[in-house]
Design a protein around this nucleic acid. Structure first.
Lengths: 159, 159
DNA sequence: ATATATCGCTTGCACTTTGCAAGTGAGTCC
DNA sequence: GGACTCACTTGCAAAGTGCAAGCGATATAT
């Protein structure tokens, strides 16, 4: 039997060139997948940090999808991954500064849904909604500080 | 040959029940597809209104994808469709109030990309970026008024 | 020390969605 | 009436998704 060496250059998802550098398109290609933003939500609102915690989300991640989205968010610098110091099996995911800057975007989405989804669970956090309305940017800045030390913000605003 | 009558209840995409009423998830399921938001961008920034105009976007819609996303945005009430009064072949797509309320979301995405994409085309509209930074909500309100009468905002802010 | 469980993934496979090219039918222009 | 435009629809290969099962490394119980 004869053999030939073949080199394939596989283009990883994140090396694909962007379709455009329009700022809307950039944002969408960077984080724009549904599942990716749900990971960020879990971190910001629920204080989740590990693969297993994300997996338990009510929307139901598939394991492979979760892994691929985490990879993606790491690759573009929205998340960072550190080893857990007390349990060698665990990995801790956290927002980078670039990721933290997405909080105002998430908040605007929350505001929109609170207004247009009749059944929105946002009804349960009227104080938070009001604060976002008043000054999204300022609130976001405070949440960024809190995330650096704490574990998610939702519980603080459940009346 | 024997026949049997079978009734299938096909569930249309937009009748699928939401995975959750979490406000972030609602937003993502409502408009959360990349292509859907690019349509909104084309309307807000470029003043596009017809199928053919959307199709010409630099990111390259497939015809079937464009059609399906327009359907979706109509179904959830973000867009409305009217017949062109002067040309029976054309359809005019426009944002409903629910769609107009997405402008602040789009603006926050623009802001994030302007900050984190080194090659962002946002460099070409520094005045607009600055205005969004100062007061996204107020600017959005003005843009909503302008969209009701005019044809997209980008040209106003190209220095 | 050994067995069992947990954690963060990866793999296989059926199914769905996408992207591209080629229609199609109604309306317009000449 | 014939060519063209507009807003789609269709067919099909390729890519992506969802589910279940597996895997290697670490941790825990006996």
């Amino acid at each position: 039997m004869q053999w030939v060496n073949v080199t394939i250059r596989l283009m990883k998802r994140d090396e694909k060139k962007l379709r455009s550098h329009c700022p809307v398109n950039y944002g969408l290609e960077a984080f724009g997948d549904r599942w990716a933003l749900l990971i960020l939500r879990d971190i910001v609102f629920r204080g989740k940090r590990t693969y297993g915690e994300f997996l338990a989300s009510e929307e139901g991640f598939s394991t492979n999808i979760l892994a691929s989205r985490l990879d993606h968010l790491l690759a573009i610098g929205i998340l960072q991954r550190d080893d857990d110091q007390t349990d060698g099996r665990k990995a801790i995911y956290a927002l980078t500064p670039k990721g933290l800057d997405l909080i105002p975007v998430i908040f605007e989405i929350v505001l929109w849904s609170a207004k247009h989804d009749k059944q929105s669970q946002a009804k349960r956090i009227p104080r938070l909604i009001e604060l976002i309305q008043k000054n999204n940017r300022q609130l976001s800045a405070e949440i960024m500080k809190r995330l650096a030390i704490g574990r998610g913000i939702l519980s603080d605003y459940l009346d």
